[in-house]
Amino acid sequence: MNTTISMQSLINFFLAVVFAPLLIGLINRTKAWFAGRRGQPLFQLYYDLAKLARKGAVYSRTTGWLFRAGPAVGLAAAIVAAALVPFGGAPGLIRFDGDLVLFAYCFGLMRFLTVLGALDTGSSFEGMGASREVTFSALAEPAMFLALAALVRRTESLSLSGIYAGIDVEVWRTSPALLLLVIGTLVVVLLAENSRIPVDDPNTHLELTMIHEVMVLDHGGPDFGFILYGGAVKLWAMSALISGLIVPGHFGPWCGTLSGVLCMFVLAMVVGIIESVMARLRLLRVPQLLVGGAALSAVALMITLS
């Protein structure tokens, strides 16, 4: 039994590493469909990655070793975080009490390196993007911790795998409000951290309005490939937190994984729909959205406290 579970964790981890870019494709296809276009192929990001891996690189004269090391280490951090996430009813590849802190801080490391890479170029645009990125993530981080704390309280477990093992149909029956609120927070955090509308628009064409995209303007070649791929893995890992709540996988290993993957795809389409039907918020409004997202989980915690 024990070996099958770890086998499933291993497979889940490989699914995350392999299918992560597909989520981006799904989001883009959904957006295209909403706009009445055919849109790019589902596997576009794979093609992009393959193309970037074959390219040389052009570096800004201002940049140094940190600029070159950042994308590789950032991708490593995203993959470590992906190894921590439970999926489809199976625990994560690595699990221990407090792994949720490591999960959040791995993304912190990734962000710190991206921001420093942006500042390394000395470009005003990239500095502006970096400034916005740190502002919004400083607010998104407490929101995510509030959501996880609500789950910790409900399931009385300190590890992500333990928490998600404790979420089942019974929990949905007895405290639907708590789960819905937590999912609400996690969706807000997902959108903000993965530079999606309404916080950031990955397709915008003006440097002044970008947040994440502007920070990586000067990256090219394999470095940029690492960044794109790392972003996709991050999207997968954070979506897995949501899908684990929606599909409490107690249907046996294979069914669990399958339903999990399906849920991820549906989630990607939901993100695409959100991006299609909403406009970008004014920058001053974004903190309100994030604080509002945190407030949802705060209310969830109040339920558990009362």
Partner: peptide
């Protein structure tokens, strides 16, 4: 693991760029 993965990716990057053109230019300034 993080350090080793990072080093591994850096190695991959080095291998990929070894025989390609790596040049420098100004920072993108619009």
């Amino acid at each position: 693991v993080l350090i080793m993965l990072g080093a591994g990716f850096a190695l991959v990057r080095w291998r990929l760029l070894r025989h390609r053109s790596v040049s420098t230019a100004v920072t993108w300034d619009c």
